[in-house]
Amino acid sequence: MERRALESAVVSKGRTLYGYAARFNEPTDLGGFSEIIRPGAFKRSLASADAQKVRAIYEHDSRSLLGRLGAGTLRLYEDAKGLAFEVDLPDTQLGRDLPVLVERGDVAGCSFGFIAQGEQWEGETRHLTDVDLFEITITATPAYDSTTVQVRGKQPQSVKLARLYLEACR
């Protein structure tokens, strides 16, 4: 499984974090090659039965569980910008500490763990077109500079629209 970390503002409001675990069409240098995530790369994986197993964790540590799609404590939406997420934090020490770290700016990025199912190479640039998603991670050391995480305040319009669309498709 490959992991990619992204930097940007993670937002927190109370006990919910939201942001982008991946951003589309924004190249990142991974040392030796660059990588670009294309729109639709997560679509198949999120629609599969295995999507219920996707977890939100802290610093790629499976012992630091924050939420899971199947439990309804993690929500993932692919929109025009990327892979948006919301995670309701548990009432654990980590769940209480993490929003503080996010609000201070100590933890400001995201990552994701995946296996590439579709990719295209253009010279030294890999374009991810289809991935099996296993996890998103809240992290202080992202590989992609454009990811975000924030403590829930006002829900971003793009997340609202994505949620309405997904509910209408059910």
Rank of each mutant, 00 (worst) to 15 (best):
S34Q: 10
G40F: 01
L101K: 13
D88N: 13
Y20Q: 15
L74S: 15
K53R: 04
F33T: 07
V102A: 13
A71E: 15
D91Q: 13
A49W: 02
L30P: 00
Y77K: 12
E86L: 15
L46P: 00
H60E: 05
G72N: 14
Q93D: 15
G72P: 07
A71M: 09
R96E: 12
Y20M: 14
Y77M: 15
R38I: 12
D29F: 03
E26C: 07
G32F: 03
V87D: 04
T28W: 05
F33H: 09
D29V: 12
D88F: 04
D91T: 13
A56L: 06
R63E: 13
G82E: 14
G82A: 12
D61I: 03
V54D: 07
A51M: 00
D97M: 14
A22P: 06
S64L: 12
P90R: 08
K43E: 10
R55H: 00
E26M: 10
L101W: 07
A56K: 03
R55A: 10
A56W: 03
A47G: 02
R55K: 09
F85Y: 14
Q52S: 08
S48V: 04
G19F: 01
A51P: 00
A41K: 01
L76F: 07
L30N: 10
D50W: 01
R63K: 09
G31Y: 05
Q93P: 11
P90A: 14
E86W: 02
E103W: 03
L101Y: 07
T92I: 07
F33R: 13
A51Q: 08
G67I: 01
Q52N: 00
D91V: 14
